[in-house]
Design a protein around this nucleic acid. Structure first.
Lengths: 329, 329
DNA sequence: CTGAAAGCGCTAACAG
DNA sequence: CTGTTAGCGCTTTCAG
């Protein structure tokens, strides 16, 4: 900037003003400076600017990962979420600092905030780390989490409406004439627990019994679908449908069902969750519960910026939607 | 820092030294300062430190996207790559600034560098933007690209060995007794072109004719597999195998083959590319060419840091590997 | 071993 | 309209 000032025969202050399009600077001087700057390919040093302005337009996006199961990068759902966040942040002129942290050491997630690198954090995935997240919020780290709303929650969440998602899926299967509906998912995870309660509600509403033997606890890893099917077969309980807590789970489950000689949806109807892009192109195309990814990115960013602005930002539940395709016909 | 200095009864300089573990500071003073700092949850402001040190430990990772086809976020391969990069960068103490840029305006990718936010760029995906990439390199933007090595290339690439990948796949199919092998992919993309040339080599080596009718040009979008199969059926050329340029393509192709009543691998053997995690759990498990993702992240980061250090960093081709599963049995 | 002082690149009073 | 000056939070000579 000093160079430009010298070459333009003005002071650094004027250059700064010109570059920031201050109305205080003469039209003519301004264009001269701007041209000089662009011919020298000069751009303001954002670090210095941030320091001076005590501002910062970078948001930290954290993907917690489970070091034992690597339960994080298998699912295309995350990638879509990342994309949606990138779009929402870009749109509002923010940069995105991406980090992965061990889910057991979630405090580490706050480092970019503590060191002033970012002004707030978006966490993709709540898992079972409610307490650690509360801890961060108690420290006044501006944070928004993609996940379920829980009692005594100090942090803000944005998530799909899991209860109604679970209901939609289950009622759809019931409407399709299914009576013995298996549930695949780990209810220790808050989101899955809510989907399960939606499932229970739907059964109750239609006077169907809740058989605990029909619930199989599996992780979100791709092998989960296979495991779930094999487990329920081992239990030898009759079932004519399955509600899987992710599309990936549903797809791998369907593959195993087929391998075991079952027809989908003939013998077993299947509904997934998320509506990842591949679901449409799967064979047969997968019936699923759509999570509104675009809206999710917008909502997460909106909520975080509100918090940073110290405006109250309540937790949010985004509507989910049943997408009927062929696996439940 | 001024606060800590005051509370510890020392100068800012001493605090700085203590925090940076300088040997110049008295053991006792140091621990006092360190304790004070941690009790106040103080952390050095990285922005200010960077400014003063004229350093920066942030790398920009850029995912170009095609605004018309959104040819970017459908494929789990990218997510794995992102994860691998995140790991490699974290390991070496670098932060990752993630951005998406319109592939038609790749110059924009350099912005975080021009403004001093990052010290170098990693681009995931070369697509057909060789010239723009050369332009960036000519401007001395430190940059490494995941993609194919091309003639007259000013930038550094790291990529899988596509020619040998194409050969491995094709020779495997030939060894399995297939003679009419379709190729699914857009050879306008350098990586795909190289895989195609591997495919041609393999055919030639075994004295098999190269039938241009067997090559179907489709994008990497998930619907590509479906389109490819329908196109080749429309052409009514006989084929007994297909080599698809991504696993996603292979999977959606298999679904469509099945929908058309063809057996896989009975009627048509299929080989994919990338070895994404889902491939193992697909039904039938997918034969594919593995790209060494972990090594890729390491290599990309390593090459970029070398360039930043103004050490010469030649382009690199990582070995690919044939993973035989059930779709080619 | 410690402190005073200068300065990284930028912006914003304040004074012309 | 423009320049002078101070200072964002940090590190590092240079003197004690």
């Amino acid at each position: 900037m000093a160079d430009i000032a010298r070459l333009a025969g003005v002071s650094k202050a004027t250059v700064s003003r010109a570059l920031n399009r201050s109305p205080l600077v003469n039209e003519e001087t301004r264009t001269r400076i701007l041209e000089l700057a662009s011919s020298l390919k000069y751009t303001i040093n954002i670090g210095a600017q941030n320091l001076r302005l005590k501002q910062n337009r970078t948001i930290g996006v954290v993907v917690p990962y489970d070091s034992t199961t690597r339960q994080h990068l298998s699912d295309p759902f995350f990638l879509s979420m990342l994309g949606s966040l990138a779009d929402a942040l870009t749109e509002r002129g923010f940069d995105m600092l991406l980090s992965r942290v061990d889910a057991e050491q979630l405090d580490a997630a706050a480092m970019p905030f503590d060191t002033g690198r970012v002004i707030g954090l978006i966490l993709i995935g709540q898992w079972r780390h409610h307490d650690q997240l509360n801890g961060l919020a108690a420290r006044h780290v501006p944070i928004v989490v993609w996940g379920a709303q829980l009692p005594q929650q100090l942090y803000t969440t944005v998530g799909g409406d899991n209860v109604s998602g679970g209901m939609l899926a289950t009622e759809h299967l019931i409407a399709a004439g299914r009576r013995r509906i298996a549930f695949f998912g780990d209810i220790n995870l808050p989101e899955v627990a809510q989907r399960y309660s939606g499932y229970c509600n739907a059964l109750a509403r239609h006077g169907l019994p809740l058989d605990p033997q029909l619930r199989v606890s599996v992780s979100f890893l791709p092998e989960g679908g296979d495991q779930a099917v094999r487990e329920i077969e081992r239990r030898a309980v009759p079932y004519d449908a399955a509600f899987a807590c992710s599309d990936l789970l549903a797809m791998t489950a369907i593959n195993t069902l087929r391998a075991l000689g079952k027809q989908v949806p003939g013998d077993v109807a299947v509904v997934g969750y998320d509506d990842i892009e591949l679901s449409t192109y799967f064979h047969p195309p997968l019936t699923t519960i759509r999570q509104p990814i675009r809206a999710a990115g917008q909502a997460l960013v909106g909520a975080l910026l509100a918090i940073i602005d110290s405006k109250p930002a309540g937790s949010l539940q985004l509507p989910t939607e049943l997408i009927v395709r062929a696996t439940s016909a």
